[in-house]
Write a protein that binds this DNA or RNA. Structure first.
Lengths: 352, 352
DNA sequence: CGGCCGCGTGTAATCGATTGCATAACTAAT
DNA sequence: ATTAGTTATGCAATCGATTACACGCGGCCG
């Protein structure tokens, strides 16, 4: 009863072969004769043998594990990407380690440790705001740890990258508002130093410019990708006398917070204001009103990033040049955006 | 340039000591003289040494990693628990492997492999519907893999468990509706074979019974914890002539789907119906109307579960009896529930 | 018939860190 | 001065799997 977990030795003894043969029978069956193979299988069955990954890792210097580092697991946007990554990794026989990214050296050190200690074979980074220098070191050293950056771009880093067309998508989202007749259009921004956030602002500005509209700085509301920041932005919106008739929000969460804040003061979407979001969260179609939003192909993004990373892990030469995949987002029109009704000159809104 | 990652040997050579001393200097510094310790530190710094976890795992038969198995990472309820788990694990120096649980033997085998192959030292299970027999085998064998079940209870399993007071919380949620004067109360169920879902139903029924109300089977709407199922339930609700005036939904997501479905047909909450949800998702305070809901202490749950698991991993005797922690949920009253207005006898609702 | 090839298998080294045991150098006690 | 005890360190075995190399055997070719 007090037996330890069986090792390859036990299997070998039972099948009357050497451990080398057992190993071969299990990982390259074509190298052993049919009879031996059968005896080994049987022995595995009887002894209840399972591989000890630590032993294999040590010898092969690979852990069959990838490390996913992300800024916030709780964010449904990231968690659904993580989900896709896990699925892809699972089908290729890899485990997935997750790491929350906070600020400070502590985190970076942890990240480094995971990679350098052979616990993970590669890094899938879902955040562009990590110390680039350190990462470069990691990936260019002799150890050459494969890195794929997803969601956010680290400019000039030379890392493989999988992302969505943020600038273009933001431009199209804004264009949608313009097409509906809006001329007074504001933007609910993402975090100040966030790459994605900037790209979306760029797209927004570009659409305005293309339509010959001049940007109004007061209509750029500081935000933070979360509901609270959208809620606060609503307060600022309400305090203004010259208000926009439409808002492009950097993501759905802030859009929801914003709408929620407005509604408390009787400003109703889409009657009084049109709002387009970004991400197409699960709740978007069920919000009140259902949200018009840019849908990012989250599953595809996660899957492709994982694919790419594992490809490189298994064959560092696999991808020649640094890979750069850009996935197209799709505008989903629902009810939070509506055609401008009447004259545009009166900026005020009455409460219901 | 073509150097491999430095090993403990390199450090030893540089510091002019044996590998044994280096090992001790790093993991039990008190066993080494001060001078040597300094030389080793210096050597570590110069060589850029980092531990190879595979080597250590092999020798110590522990991976400093826990495995978290959950039914759906995308679900914000689970992802925020996962977040708390990761934080706790990080502070104790453990890595976190995640595993999506699907159905079928494939998944179970994977789970088993992870544990038996020494890739993880313990299992944190966020789902009660896994084959109990298999788990029992895992945890009672000589290997004795520590298991903690969180969120859901596996009755009579003898596993350590951390969960919330589902039955009681559901009873209190329902009681809240009763307190508001509702007498015709329905329930939007969770998945049929789900433990949590059943517990919440039990609490619901208990509250009804305590108030002397007789349950109406047609008012139990089949659901699935997701928005779509809530949305479909709304269709059934609308087709009924005798409708409840209040609904206790098994979770916020289904509550939102339900409300969204009703709203499309002009049934407005809380004017025409009161709804109480469960979980207090991030969107709950910003929904229209803001959702009354039972808030589960998700962070605490994740943290305590991780704590307990790591305690057991590090000292199998740490917890004597199977641990059972029950955390109390808290009713958050917002605007989706309102006092019954007039006579209760006319069940119909008019659209606006 | 001799040499070569290829297949299937075994032997033993190896991956990197930890740790039981041995040893040496001191200190303290008798 | 001898012995016992303590502290710091080294030696070498060990964890479990993989794999380079060697070997034996049978078949085939010249």
């Amino acid at each position: 009863m007090e037996r330890k977990t069986p090792t390859i030795q036990d299997v070998a003894r039972f099948a009357n072969v050497s451990t080398a043969t057992v190993s071969r029978a299990l990982s390259s069956p074509e190298k052993v004769s049919e009879g031996t193979r059968a005896r080994v299988s049987e022995a595995v069955r009887v002894t209840g043998y399972t591989l000890n990954q630590a032993g294999r890792s040590l010898r092969q210097r690979s852990a069959k594990t990838i490390l996913v580092a992300l800024p916030d697991i709780r964010n449904p946007f990231f968690s659904s990407i993580l989900d896709a990554i896990e699925r892809e990794a699972a089908t290729r026989g890899y485990g997935v380690l997750v790491l929350n990214l906070y600020f400070g050296h502590e985190t970076i050190r942890r990240l480094q440790d995971f990679l350098l200690s052979n616990r993970a074979d590669g890094l899938l980074l879902l955040d562009g705001s990590v110390d680039t220098y350190l990462l470069q070191t990691l990936s260019s050293q002799a150890g050459a740890i494969p890195i794929v950056v997803a969601c956010e771009e680290i400019p000039n880093s030379g890392f493989h990258t999988v992302l969505t067309d943020n600038v273009d998508a933001a431009e199209r989202a804004t264009q949608h508002l313009i097409d509906l007749g809006h001329r007074r259009i504001g933007h609910l921004l993402g975090p100040e130093h966030n790459v994605v956030s900037r790209e979306r602002f760029t797209g927004f500005a570009r659409a305005l410019a293309a339509a010959g509209l001049s940007p109004v700085p007061e209509w750029n509301f500081r935000g933070n990708f979360d509901m609270e920041s959208g809620f606060s932005a609503a307060a600022r919106f309400l305090s203004m006398t010259e208000r926009p008739t439409a808002i492009f929000a950097a993501n759905d969460e802030s859009a929801i917070g914003f709408l929620s804040g407005l509604r408390q003061h009787g400003i109703i979407c889409p009657r009084d204001i049109s709002v387009v979001g970004f991400d197409d969260l699960g709740v978007a179609p069920h919000y009140v009103p259902p949200l018009t939003t840019m849908r990012q192909p989250r599953e595809a993004l996660g899957r492709m990033a994982a694919e790419a990373l594992i490809d490189v892990v298994e064959d560092p030469e696999a991808l020649g040049m640094p890979l750069r995949i850009v996935l197209r987002s799709e505008l989903v029109v629902r009810e939070s955006t509506a055609r401008m009704a009447r004259v545009d000159m009166e900026g005020g809104n009455r409460s219901s």
